[in-house]
Design a protein around this nucleic acid. Sequence first.
DNA 1: CTGAAAGCGCTAACAA
DNA 2: TTGTTAGCGCTTTCAG
Lengths: 356, 356
Amino acid sequence: MKKKRPSIKDIATKLNVSVTTVSFVINGKAKEKRISDELIKRVQEYIKEINYKPNQLAQSLRTGKSKIIVFMVEDISNYFFAKLARIIEDIAYEKGYKVLFCSNDNKDEKSVELINLFKDKQVDGFIIIPSSGIRSTIKDLIEENIPVVLFDRYFTDLETNYVIIDNEDAAFKATEHLIKNGFKNIAFITTDVEQTQMLARLNGYINGVTNHDLKENLLKIPYNRKSSARKSIIKDFLESNPDLDSIFFATNYLTQDGLSVIKENFPDSINELGLITFDDNTLYEICTPSISAVAQPLNEIGQNLMDLMLKLLQDPQGKLPINKIVLKAQLQTRMSTLAKKGLILPKRSAIDPKLT
Amino acid sequence: MKKKRPSIKDIATKLNVSVTTVSFVINGKAKEKRISDELIKRVQEYIKEINYKPNQLAQSLRTGKSKIIVFMVEDISNYFFAKLARIIEDIAYEKGYKVLFCSNDNKDEKSVELINLFKDKQVDGFIIIPSSGIRSTIKDLIEENIPVVLFDRYFTDLETNYVIIDNEDAAFKATEHLIKNGFKNIAFITTDVEQTQMLARLNGYINGVTNHDLKENLLKIPYNRKSSARKSIIKDFLESNPDLDSIFFATNYLTQDGLSVIKENFPDSINELGLITFDDNTLYEICTPSISAVAQPLNEIGQNLMDLMLKLLQDPQGKLPINKIVLKAQLQTRMSTLAKKGLILPKRSAIDPKLT
DNA sequence: CTGAAAGCGCTAACAA
DNA sequence: TTGTTAGCGCTTTCAG
C-alpha cells in the first residue's frame, strides 16, 4: 500500500535530466543557473503532477538547517506561556518555521538536558526563559553562534539578546495605583528566587511604598513548594498581619493560591481587600470582584521575540549587534483595587449567605 | 570558534577501528555482534571523553524515524489543551520523543496543510483533534500506515484509534445535578457545530431534562464568532428568557462569555443562577460563586493518548487492532450550582455595593 | 569478531 | 546550459 515517496532522482530519471537540474528548479535557482525556460516548465509541471515534496530531513542534513526553533518556558500549561506560545507559533509558521515547545520547570538540569538534546537535533534557534543556573549553557550556545533570545529574565553579566518587560516600573505603578486608591498597608507576596524579573518587581514595590512613607510587608515564599504549602504560608502570613488592607501578588500562580486562601479563610475580606496581581488572565474579569492585574503585552512580546529571532536566523556570521528590548506592561484596573476596608478576620458569613 | 561536531568517522579514525564497530557500540548492538569487551570499553570511554552525540538528523534520514510526534489541537493557548500538552510532553520526553505542537483553529484547510507539512518532515506520529472536514486526510494517514490517534472527537464513519470522554453521560449527569438542586428551567448554551463531542453533550442535556419532564432551553451560537458577538447573542437570549433559573455551558470559552454577560448585565443574578460548565479551570474555584464544572480527566486522557501512540509507534506493520477509548468525566460541584432564585433582571445593585 | 561499502535524499562545486 | 559526483552522518548488509 505504502508507496515510496518520489525522490529527486526519480524525477530526474523520469524526465531524462540530471538531479542537479531538478534541484535547481526546485530551489528557484533555475534562472540564476540559466536553465532553459522550457525545461524549467517541464520539471515544474511534473513536480506538480506527482505532488512532489522534498524530504526535509535530507535537506536539513545537507544544509544544516532544520527550520525548527525551540521555545522553552517554565511550564507550557501556564496561561501566560500558553498564550505566548500561540503567538509565536503563528508568526513562525508564517515564516516557514516550526516550533518545538518544551517546559523546563525552571530546573537547571532539565534545561541543560533539553538544550543539548535540541542541539543534537540541529534546531535553528532557541527562545528561552532561562532558569537561574544555565548561564554557561547559554553562553556556549552563543559562542557556537546558535541564535538565542532570552525573555522574561536574563543574566545581568552576560551579553545576550533578550526581550523583557520593565518589571520594576510595572510593579511601581501597580503599587502607586493601590496607594492612590487609599490603601496604606500593602503586602507584597512573592517567591524567594534571585530571578531578575522577580527582583525587579520587588524593587518596584519597595520604591512604591517607601516613596509614600508606607511600611513594607513582604512575604517571600520558598520556591518549588507545592500549592498547598504555599497556601498555608500565605494563610499564616495573613493571620499574623491583620492590619493589611491590600495585597500585591508578584506572579500568577501565587494569586491563585492567595485568592483561594482568602476565600476559604477570610471570606469576608474578599471585597474589602485591595488585590492586584502580575500577569493578567481573562478569567480575572469575571471573578467577583474582578481582579486588577499588570498585563504583560503578549502580542508585543511575541512579535519582538520572533522579529529578533528571524533576524538572527538570517544573519550568517552572527555579526548582528546585541538587542535588548524592554517593553512596558499595562495596568488593568478592575474592581479589586477599588475596595476599602481591608482584611477582615472571619466572624459572620456576609458575602454569600446562601452558600454556607 | 565554532568547532565542528565530531562524527562517527572521526571517532573511528582516532581509535583505529571502523565506523561499523563504533556504530554498533553506540547502538548497543556490540554484544550481539560479538565485539570484544575491551574494544567496547575503549570506544565508550572515548565517546564519553569527547562527549560525542550522534547527529539525529542523519540518524533520522537513515532510519526514517524522527522521534517527533505532533500534537495538533484547536488552540494551544486554550486552558484545556495547554494542560494536556504539558502532560503529553512529559510522557513523550521520558520515552525519547519530542512533541511538535500546533493549533489548527479548527479549520480544515489549516489542518490539512499542517499535516502535510509534518509528513514531509517525517514525523513519527500524530495526535489530533480533527476539524470536521479532514476525514479523508486522516484516512490517508492511516492508509499510509502513519500512527494517528484522535481525541476529543472522531469521525463516526472512520475506523480510527481515539481517546474521548463520555460526553453524553457527563452532560446528563451535570444536568441531573442541576435538577437535583432544585433547578427547573435549565438553559443549555452551546455552539452550532456538528462535532461529535458537542452533539453528545447536547444529547446528554436533552435526555436529562426530558427525563424529568422539564423544558429544553437551547441556545446554539454560530461557530467562529468573536467573543463580543457571542456575548451579545447570549445577552439577548437571557433577556428574552427571564424565567431561566440555571445555565449549562457546553464549553469553556462560552462560559467566559456567559459569565461576563451576567456580570455586566444581570449582576444580581450571579449568585442566584445555577451555573455549570464543561471543562474545569483552577480559577473557577476562586470565582464568587465558585463555578461547578464537568472536569475532563486530563491526566488520564494524556496517559491513554500516549500509551496508544507509543504502542502504535512500536508496531511496525500497523497490525494493531483499533483502540477506542472512552473515559468518564468528573463532576466538580461547587457553589454555583447550589443557589436557588434564578435569573434576576437588573434593578438594584446588591452584590457589590462598593463597586458601583 | 571486525571492516568495507552501499545508500537514505539532497545540494552544490566542478566539469563538460 | 546541463550533468557528474562528492559528500552531509549514520545504519546495516555482507564479506572476511
